[in-house]
Design a protein around this nucleic acid. Structure first.
Length: 624
DNA sequence: TGCCACACCCACACACCAA
DNA sequence: TTTGGTGTGTGGGTGTGGC
């Protein structure tokens, strides 16, 4: 366990560790000393100063070196010296010490001193050899490296920093900068524990007693900050907002040439090639988001967001929000043309595809296996296995798209995307990716993927449902009537009200896969048929109608509802029935209370609903 | 055989420059 | 002022070989 920074004592004991001018006596204690914390605190509490950086042994030859063992060529003092001083209130003199303090340690350990001398000699001899030699790091060297890092925390990942350490410091003789850096990164970083506070010029900041100030490692940023998914998302949103504010015409001038292009334009209706993002935007944005500089933000847009697609990333981010690993930042966009050959890209694509297919080969509800494939796809942890495949394939699609943008030659591989999707049964995943991008209606024709048949009904005269609509009772306080015999269920239901034996005895992965097929089927003729098909999978009629009621029949929402349902079942079984009934305060998912608010005009409680969702619900309820 | 010292590689954050 | 090109070196990963 790394030594903790000394903490100041609560009560101030007598300051016995002072010289005749009342200056604090300076002690050195190595952090590897077993009672480092205790004695550091004792010395501090009694007016002394404690150093743990070995550099002071060179710069402050008069320092009192406290140690449980002998050091080569150094006079050390046993810790009992401190105990005795505190006990008696008198600091004993050390004979032969430059400051006159008594050497409190018997001169033992000559053997170790000799060993150290031999070691250093041997090391220096070996370092002159040609060919690759390795030199073990000693505890003293490790300690020294840690202290150097603590004093220059912002440099702790720099190549040059370690290069200078290895070149300039005698104690690290025999090691290269690379090896010191590697030693720190692989073996010592987790022992760092804390760093010292420094100013903007990397100078140490001392407190009023000339002690360095220990701060958590995380409090000291390194030279470069990685872009997070939130950084990327905020940037993309800000750019979309900018375009909307400016009311720039960002439509496409020419018609889509292929089905793929048509689909793409439907998903991402703003023509990003027409985006005009001036430097003043980045100036403002960097002020509001100071974690990166103006030029860095601009570069991020130029080299990442724009090639990836601003709208596409917003959608990707939202899609990954519910994943176990959360959204990922944009990556692999900066490959410069001559650095990566087309074949390398193909290799990478090939690996991605193989990963997808491998993940397909071992579908499971077992969460531990989710972890296994989590690297490939953060979405997997949430969904049941068939959705894992879908999501994995969706990621493969994204990877392919990214690779395609990197290298035109890989466009040849594009047709494989659909093949992989089919292979991995991932079309449903596309629906999920597709839903819930919210853009200015004036700029977009994006809409939710309402089930075609429901949509058809809604487009028709809503009075067609009047004869089958019923009053909502029980859980509902609203007097709202619902089409298609839809009715909310309340949480007093039990498991058998939701599922039949068919469901409980089925492979749930197969069930979700079948749901995908049903909801995506263009041949679904009517709601009765959809209901029937869902009932055949083991859902009760009541539950199906409840789900229609919650989702308003939107296919994307329906899928999301079922995904949520399987997730709840996987995590808590059917213990939490209320969670199987509602998705609270989630855009596009309705409750009796939300409908009540809508019908009574109390829309302030519906702030989490998008205007599109409210509009769709009003249609669903027959208001317009 | 595993660990680790050491070397090397690459993506990318950040910056600068020229058109 | 904008934009694209590119340099620099950080941050992190990985391969190799000695011990």
């Amino acid at each position: 366990m790394p030594p903790q920074p000394p903490s100041p004592p609560r009560n101030i004991p007598p300051a016995i560790f002072r010289d005749s001018n009342n200056h604090p006596l300076e002690f050195f204690i190595g952090e590897d000393e077993p009672d480092f914390n205790y004695y550091a605190n004792q010395i501090l509490a009694h007016g002394g100063v404690v150093h743990s950086n070995t550099e002071v042994l060179v710069h402050l030859p008069d320092i009192i070196h406290l140690s449980t063992r002998n050091w080569p060529r150094r006079m050390t003092v046993a810790f009992s010296y401190i105990d005795d001083a505190i006990k008696t209130g008198v600091v004993p003199r050390i004979p032969n010490h430059p400051q006159g303090f008594a050497e409190h340690r018997e001169n033992e350990g000559k053997k170790r001193e000799l060993e150290m001398a031999d070691f250093l000699g041997d090391k220096r001899k070996r370092s002159g050899n040609t060919g690759k030699t390795t030199t073990k790091f000693t505890p003293e060297q490790d300690h020294f490296i840690l202290e150097e890092v603590r004093m220059k925390p912002r440099h702790r990942t720099l190549h040059l920093f370690f290069e200078k350490l290895a070149r300039n410091l005698e104690i690290l003789r025999g090691h290269t900068g690379n090896s010191v850096r590697s030693r720190y990164r692989l073996q010592l970083e987790n022992k760092l524990g804390y760093v010292y506070k420094t100013d903007t010029d990397d100078n140490l900041i001392l407190d009023e007693t000339r002690l360095r100030i220990a701060i958590p490692v995380e409090a000291s940023q390194t030279m470069k900050r990685k872009y997070t998914a939130e950084d990327d998302y905020n940037l993309c949103c800000a750019i979309v907002d900018l375009v909307r504010e400016n009311k720039t015409l960002v439509t496409f001038d020419t018609a889509a040439k292929t089905d793929e292009e048509l689909l793409e334009r439907h998903k991402y209706p703003m023509n990003e090639e027409k985006f005009l993002v001036l430097i003043s935007f980045f100036d403002r944005f960097a002020l509001q988001n100071p974690q990166h500089s103006l030029s860095s933000w601009r570069d991020r847009y130029r080299k990442f967001a724009r090639p990836f697609g601003v709208q596409k990333y917003i959608e990707k981010y939202k899609f990954e929000l519910n994943s176990k690993d959360g959204p990922l930042p944009m990556k692999n966009m900066t490959r410069r043309p001559n650095k990566m050959s087309a074949s390398s890209n193909e290799d990478r694509l090939s690996r991605d595809i193989k990963k997808v297919l491998r993940s397909r080969a071992k579908p499971s509800f077992n969460s531990s296996q989710h972890h296994e494939s989590m690297h490939m796809d953060p979405h997997m942890g949430v969904m049941s296995a068939p959705m894992d495949d879908s999501a994995a394939a969706a990621v493969a699609v994204a990877n392919m798209a990214v690779a395609s943008m990197n290298d035109k030659s890989t466009m040849l591989i594009d047709p494989n995307i659909h093949e992989v999707l089919r292979e991995a049964n991932a079309e449903a995943g596309l629906v999920n990716i597709h839903e819930d991008i919210r853009l200015d209606p004036s700029l977009t024709n994006v809409e939710h993927h309402q089930h075609p048949h429901l949509h058809q009904h809604l487009d028709l005269d809503h009075s067609a449902f009047n004869d089958i609509a019923i009053k909502v009772g029980g859980h509902n306080s609203s007097s709202q009537t619902y089409p298609f015999d839809c009715k909310f269920m309340d949480s007093s239901v039990n498991e058998t009200d939701l599922f039949t034996h068919t469901f409980t005895s089925s492979d749930q992965r197969e069930v979700l896969s079948s749901i995908n097929e049903i909801l995506l089927s263009s041949t679904a003729e009517d709601l009765n048929k959809v209901t029937q098909q869902l009932e055949q999978l083991g859902f009760t009629s009541r539950y199906v109608k409840h789900i229609f009621c919650v989702t308003g029949g939107d296919a994307g929402r329906l899928l999301e509802f079922f995904q949520h349902m399987f997730q709840v079942l996987e995590e808590s079984g059917s213990r939490d029935l209320d969670q199987l009934l509602y998705l609270y305060e989630k855009d596009g998912f309705w409750t009796p209370e939300a409908d009540e608010a809508l019908t009574t005009g109390h829309q302030s409680s519906l702030q989490y609903m998008s205007p599109e969702s409210i509009n769709a619900r009003q249609k669903f309820l027959g208001f317009e």
